[in-house]
Design a protein around this nucleic acid. Structure first.
Lengths: 341, 341
DNA sequence: CTGAAAGCGCTTACAG
DNA sequence: CTGAAAGCGCTTACAG
């Protein structure tokens, strides 16, 4: 069946297409009598404006793209929820692209950025060396970019961002472990190349150094950001000649894996081994034992990122290029205790 | 700065815009010498075709919308992964809409369907009585719709779908519990109105009836599809005058909540209480104890749904309106045992 | 208050 | 092999 267009409606109502357009977009500017007639024609034909044509004409799509490592991570789900809540209210929809934990190469992501016609791009912990050509082009077409969750790489330094103080938070988490009496503290990090835990690892190392504690070779284990990766990393740590008494995990997903690996090894957490997470995803509270972790305000990050994106879209450029730091918070539950004597 | 358009490139290369267009879309049809010249002009200007204009002209967006209850559910994340894997390869992107566990009203979803210009819509367990007007319009504009994960409601009966046999799978899960010796089996369901566990509840009831077992008032508890909801539902079940010895949860998320509630009540699973899940999300295997559950092939569902969507888009209409049933599988781990004596 | 007309940036028969 | 021109479905000054 033929698609009904504005023309169909105009003919049926006996008016010009301009008038139909006005009835839809500025109804106050048309006489009631004609408005009613057009309304009826719309109903009768079941007309819905062609969104592509409208986007084309108006020059924007009401779509914002969000690039993130994985929609499967409950932490990002929280951020997404925050983004969606503000973006929805303003009539925008979300195009979601995963970088599969930053294993996509820059060209692929770059192509997405430049090619897809979104009104703006939110980069969530997906920052790695874009080609500057991409950035330059993105700049030229004035598509705003805003960064969430992680400190930006040098190339992205000029863009607005919102995130916690990852280095500081990781330092505090490590210090908490130290305050419980631990001196042998290991860290499970993401795969090399991922931005996701880079700053957290830096914070961990800083706290160890500040306390005059050694970090022997092998105490920073790659956990792949996954359950299985963390299980393997934990096993390696438990087999380490200098077995740590506490494991600080770069995110909760990996902490859940560490908990499982400890259990499988016949260890009691926290009696035999302490485990600290990062993020405070919803599964942290119901884990066994409930996970002590460093909480990030996921929804708040999403809301703030989205708000700034919308402001930038409206202004036609980023109005505020500063980094916005949101608060982190240590959540003490049961997975951390004093080291075994 | 002014956006560079096809015209800019044409002028710089000294050719018509038609030729530039051909260089991009059918390079074979232009002479090498001119092609090179145009290529250079493209590089020099940093030209990228305007996707909106192209979509407008071509009449499609290369966007498919997926409507689902929640991106936060790891099961749906799996389905999404499957969808993305096939859709990516064909150059499509995803617009993702959440119905917040089917609490959105039909009009809201309807508006999204009709208004947003996606090439097709995938409905994941988000099926409730659309107004027939919406459906009719969707039909008229020949936007394909395909259903995933749940049996379709009557209004959607004519649309293609792919899902497991939810009723049968739930019946088998219940029968497994019975085979372990349980006769007092409760069920935790979603909030009323959600399609997500409707068939599973039906399967549970069928199995109970087939075994001649009673389902006293209160044994089917609303768990809200969430951790917290399931915790409350489990508590209520444990306080029930006829306390069940096994709880079958409508999905794994709720089973995780049930596990936690049991632990909090000082119960050992499976010694004091058996818990059965549904889905086999990735957290099922690392739960404590590891969860016995009815697995759905999430990625496969996603792949099949996406494949059929792409076929339908290409054909301009759904080519195959049949329901495709994918296999389920009982995964026995440690959360189910014989009832306490 | 309403209409005629231009134009958004492409693609694609149609000529040549 | 290449160009001139139509047209995709809207919106929006500009007249009247």
């Amino acid at each position: 069946m033929k698609q009904v267009s504005i023309k169909t409606v105009a003919e049926l109502a006996g008016v010009s297409i301009a008038t139909v357009s006005r009835c839809i977009n500025e109804p106050d500017r048309v006489r009631e009598k004609t408005r009613v007639r057009v309304q009826e024609a719309i109903l009768q034909t079941g007309y819905e404006p062609n969104t592509i044509a409208r986007s084309f004409r108006r020059g924007h799509t009401n779509l914002v793209m969000v690039v993130l490592p994985s929609v499967g991570d409950p932490f990002f789900t929280g951020v997404l929820r925050g983004i969606r809540s503000v973006v929805d209210a303003e009539g925008y929809s979300l195009i979601i692209s995963e970088t599969q934990f930053n294993t996509m190469n820059a060209d692929e992501v770059g192509a997405m950025l430049v090619t897809r016609q979104a009104d703006g791009v939110i980069l969530l912990a997906s920052i790695f060396p874009f080609g500057s050509a991409v950035l330059e082009r993105a700049g030229r077409r004035a598509q705003p970019i805003v960064i969430g969750c992680e400190t930006i790489s040098a190339a992205l330094a000029g863009f607005p961002s919102v995130h916690i103080d990852n280095v500081g938070a990781a330092r505090e988490a490590t210090a908490y472990l130290q305050a419980q009496g631990h001196t042998r503290i290991a860290f499970i990090t993401a795969q090399a190349g991922s931005m996701l835990t880079r700053d957290r690892e830096a914070g961990y190392r800083a706290a160890m150094e500040a306390a005059g504690l050694a970090v022997p070779e092998g105490w920073v284990a790659e956990g792949d950001l996954s359950l299985d990766g963390a299980i393997r990393a934990t096993q390696a740590l438990l087999d380490h000649p200098e077995r740590p008494t506490a494991i600080f995990c770069g995110n909760d997903e990996m902490a859940l894996g560490a908990l499982h690996a400890a259990r499988a090894a016949g260890l009691d957490v926290p009696r035999d081994l302490s485990v600290m997470g990062f993020d405070d995803i919803r599964y942290a509270a119901t884990a066994s034992p409930p996970l002590t972790t460093m909480a990030q305000p996921a929804e708040l990050i999403g809301e703030r990122v989205a708000r700034r994106m919308l402001d930038a879209i409206e202004a036609g450029h980023a109005t505020n290029r500063e980094a916005e730091i949101v608060p982190h918070r240590l959540v003490v539950r049961d997975s951390v205790g004093p080291p075994p004597s």
